[in-house]
Simulated scan of single mutants.
Amino acid sequence: MAKFQPQAVKLYYHGETFDTKQEIHEISDAWLIADDVVGTYSDDWLVFYDTGRLEKKSDGYHLYENNYPRFFTVDTPKVGADLRKIDVSKLAGMSFTDFVRIGFKLGRSSYESY
């Protein structure tokens, strides 16, 4: 069996704004880091989506908010600057449990400082 190779993909978000309920459509750079996990990041969070509820099209993965996609986020103000340094493609091969452990560890470290 060949080793999984991460690949750059596009993630298309289709949803609505929280306050005005206006439709929004956003495109993000993302990585397919496992057969069933797409990861992306911004300035202050990492998010990993289970591809089971994303629609795969020729231009990338489409996330429809009303399809209730499964996801896991890492979002702590203390590590925000450090998250930008993470090469999401290097997370390939990690299990979802590993992602959860990373999240709990980062969350715990930010709470212990209070």
Rank of each mutant, 00 (worst) to 15 (best):
M1S: 13
K3I: 14
F4P: 05
Q7F: 06
K10P: 06
L11M: 06
L11E: 04
Y13K: 02
H14E: 14
T17P: 02
D19Q: 04
Q22H: 05
I24S: 08
H25C: 01
H25F: 04
E26W: 12
E26C: 13
S28G: 00
S28I: 05
D29Q: 13
W31M: 06
W31H: 06
W31C: 06
L32H: 04
I33Q: 07
A34N: 10
D36E: 04
V37G: 00
V38A: 02
V38K: 08
G39H: 02
Y41A: 00
S42G: 09
D43E: 12
V47I: 12
D50I: 00
D50T: 03
R53C: 06
E55P: 01
D59G: 01
H62F: 02
H62L: 05
Y68H: 05
R70G: 02
F71T: 08
F72E: 10
V74D: 01
V74A: 00
K78S: 11
K78W: 10
A81R: 13
A81N: 12
L83K: 11
K85Q: 12
I86Q: 00
D87R: 07
V88E: 00
S89Q: 12
L91F: 09
F96H: 01
V100N: 00
V100A: 03
F104S: 06
F104K: 10
F104Q: 03
K105N: 15
S109F: 09
Y111T: 03
S113K: 15
Y114I: 14
Y114Q: 14
